[in-house]
Structures are given as structure tokens and as C-alpha cells.
Design a binder for these strands. Structure first.
Length: 290
DNA sequence: AAGAGCTACAACCGCAGCATA
DNA sequence: CTATGCTGCGGTTGTAGCTCT
């Protein structure tokens, strides 16, 4: 019996993720997590993506604790050593390398280390040693330590080129089909906060790199100023931006539950507010011209 | 300068295992 | 107990950018 596909591939977007999609997914997941259901997430967040794709994007690319960029010699040695012990258990290897994903390790292995490994194993074979068995893992690394070590490592992780990319959209993500019919004041206020936070994230990333390629964003010069103005105005109303939105733990600690509580999200992890309108709609609703 | 080949990495695919109704 | 749905995982593919000829 064949499995049904996880989503209708003809109705979801595929291929590379845009900065707008990244911003929406990052903001949504940091706010609400996946609520135990990646399949439903894209619909809730207003993303035209397969849930699986969202999960992969978050896990392999958007998570704040991730490190991108070159592997160190120490990591090289550890991967080579682990491969000799457990074979292609990329997730186990990744758990031993804070800030790295299984996909990272796998790609790095396939493009670089594999050759080195084969060369060294053939050398050692000619020297009389048998190559290490790339098979049954003896004992998986203790999962309990993974999160803590990753969390600890996340503390001093410097964000690399991916995080440094300025990603200020000329207009907010889902605004092209913005429906102004819903006008719940509380919801509007909350959505303004959400969008202000998104803009804050974008602004922070841009300013950290000096907005160096803002000009590369099509038609950004005039329209890009509007979200910033909105953020400044909301910040004036709500107080300064004090939470680093790249810090998932900090984000999840307070506003999420407060927001969900505000909408009585007892039986739906996303809350009825998000059932009634998507996350992008929430963002969109904030984009009334103040 | 242009095309071929290579490299790095993002993204997709499909299966296995687990949870749950 | 079984069917179903979801997540996690490893293998594979696609492609942008770089280097070489």
C-alpha cells in the first residue's frame, strides 16, 4: 500500500526559499514553534510550501543556533573518527557537533571528507589495516546531552554570512493580497506587534551589515522606509525592542504564551486567531498606513 | 572570452519508526 | 490490533558560482 504524499506537489512552491519566506517562517516558528505539526504550519503561516520543506528549512538553515561556514580541523577529525565508528549516521554526528546539522555534515562529507577518508583508508589498507566498518552504530550518542550542548554552544555562536544577509523586503510578505475587512482592534494591535518584531529582526540584520546591499533589493529605496517607520512607531507605543528574535528560548518564554492566552488557544496550539486568518494575514494587517 | 568541469550546498524524495485514534 | 498521520533520517538531485582550459 503506497503512502499518500504529504502535500499536493502541484499546489506548493518548490525550489529555493526567498528572504520573505524565510522571514515569515522564522518569525512564525520562533513565535509558535511548529505546535507539533509541521504539515499544518505552512497553511497557518501563510506559506505556499510543503510542511516537510518548512521543517527542513528551519532545521537546516534558519535555526538561530546554527553555524554556517567552514568546518574546523577539529570537526574534520571528529567526523572522520565518527564515520569510522558508526558509518553514515549523520544525525548522530551532527549531535556531536554543536551548530551543525546532519545535512551540513552529510554535504561536507560527500564533497570533501569522503575523498580524504577513502585515501587514508586505502593507504592504511595497503599498510595492512582493514578499513573501518561503516555499519551498525554501537551506541547512539546520548540525546539528553544534545540539546544542552547545542544550547550552550548557541550562546557564543557568531552568525555567519547567512544571517548577515540583509533581507528587507520592499513590502511585507503577504501584503499583496491584504484583506482589510477584518478589523478587530486587539488582533490588529497584536499583529502590529508581530510585524514590528519581524521588521525589527530585518532591520537589525540590515543594520548589522550596514545595509550594504539594500540597493540590490529591487525598488527598495522608498518603500523599504515604510516598515522601518512602522517599527519605530510601534516601538514608541510598545517600548523598545528588547528581545533578540534569534534567541528562540527567549522568544518562546513570554510573548507566545501571552499571545495565545489572549486568544484562548487552549485546544489549538496556534489559537483561533490563527485559524481565522493566517500568520501572514496578521503581518499584513499591521501594514495599514499609519 | 567562452565553454567545460568541478565544488559546495540547498532542497527534494521516499522509507522507517513512532504515536495515536 | 490495525490503519493512518507525522517526524526523522539518509540518499540523491539540482544548481549557482568558481576554476580551468
Amino acid at each position: 500500500m503506497g503512502r499518500s504524499p504529504c502535500c499536493d506537489k502541484t499546489r506548493v512552491k518548490r525550489g529555493p526559499w526567498s528572504q520573505e519566506e524565510d522571514a515569515v517562517l522564522r518569525s512564525f516558528v520562533q513565535r509558535f514553534g511548529n505546535a507539533g505539526n509541521w504539515i499544518a504550519l505552512p497553511q497557518r503561516a501563510g506559506l505556499k510550501r510543503c510542511g516537510k520543506s518548512c521543517r527542513l528549512r528551519w532545521l537546516n538553515y534558519l535555526r538561530p543556533e546554527l553555524r554556517h561556514g567552514g568546518f574546523t580541523d577539529e570537526e574534520d577529525r571528529l567526523i572522520l573518527s565518527l564515520y569510522g565508528e558508526i558509518g553514515s549516521k549523520w544525525s548522530v554526528m551532527a549531535s556531536r557537533l554543536p551548530g551543525r546539522t546532519d545535512n551540513d555534515v552529510k554535504n561536507y562529507w560527500n564533497t570533501k571528507l569522503k575523498k580524504r577518508y577513502l585515501a587514508s583508508s586505502s593507504t592504511s589498507t595497503t599498510q595492512g589495516r582493514s578499513p573501518p566498518p561503516p555499519s551498525p552504530p554501537p551506541a547512539p550518542a546520548p540525546p539528553s546531552g544534545d540539546n544542552s550542548s547545542n544550547a550552550a554552544a548557541a550562546a557564543d555562536i557568531h552568525h555567519t554570512h547567512q544571517d548577515e544577509k540583509p533581507c528587507l523586503p520592499p513590502t511585507p510578505p503577504a501584503l499583496t493580497e491584504f484583506d482589510t475587512t477584518f478589523a478587530d482592534d486587539t488582533l490588529l494591535f497584536k499583529s502590529e506587534q508581530l510585524y514590528a518584531e519581524l521588521v525589527g529582526l530585518i532591520g537589525k540584520q540590515s543594520s548589522s551589515t550596514g545595509d550594504r546591499d539594500e540597493a540590490s533589493t529591487p525598488s527598495s529605496s522608498s518603500s523599504a522606509a515604510r516598515p522601518r517607520r512602522l517599527a519605530a512607531q510601534v516601538a514608541a507605543l510598545c517600548g523598545p525592542w528588547t528581545v533578540d528574535v534569534r534567541d528562540t528560548a527567549a522568544l518562546l518564554s513570554e510573548p507566545t504564551t501571552a499571545l495565545l492566552d489572549a486568544y484562548g488557544a487552549a485546544d489549538d496550539a496556534f489559537g483561533p486567531a490563527l485559524s481565522a486568518c493566517s500568520f501572514q494575514d496578521l503581518l499584513a494587517s499591521s501594514y495599514v498606513d499609519l
